[in-house]
Amino acid sequence: MRIQFNLSSLRQTKWSEYAVRFIFGGAITVAAGLLAKRFGPIFGGLFLAFPAIFPATATLVEKHEKEKRQKAELSTSLRGRQAAAVEARGTVLGSFALAAFAWMVWKILPNLNGPWTLAAALSGWFALSVAIWSFRKRLRFTTRPRQSRRPEQ
């Protein structure tokens, strides 16, 4: 399946749901800073990889999938949960790239200026994420028997 960027799907999300993400993201960033100040950078650094996006996103994915199915008058029992699980599978893959992002910053930052290091590490994170996802996708399609292939939503 091709990667698609669809701005209209953002309209499904309510302002209150955006606000929850904003508050949660802000709170985690403040907490990471305070913990680093109190217990040192090694302890505070752990929280830079805290699951800040995933919990709210998983809830929304399940909810939106259910609403979509209800509108189409289809059964909603499993589909919402399955959609959230598929999203979580992507997060597992992305966590490898996130570890690589951290490794790049750790190694490059002492020798290069801050903005360039963060830009390079962010590019590396994105490239590696896409590469791992594509590899996983190809592996899945070459190892699965043809009749059991299911289209992904």
């Binding site: 993201g25 985690i28 960033t29 990471a32 929280f47 830079l48 990889a49 805290f50 699951p51 800040a52 996006i53 995933f54 996103t57 998983a58 598929v86 999203e87 979580a88 599978r89 992507g90 997060t91 597992v92 893959l93 992305g94 966590s95 790239a97 996130l98 992002f101 951290a102 590490a121 962010l122 994170w125 994420s129 896409v130 996802w133």
Partner: peptide, 9 residues
């Protein structure tokens, strides 16, 4: 889902 592990924080 990859963006659930984005380096946002």
């Amino acid at each position: 889902g990859l963006f659930g592990a984005s380096p946002s924080v």
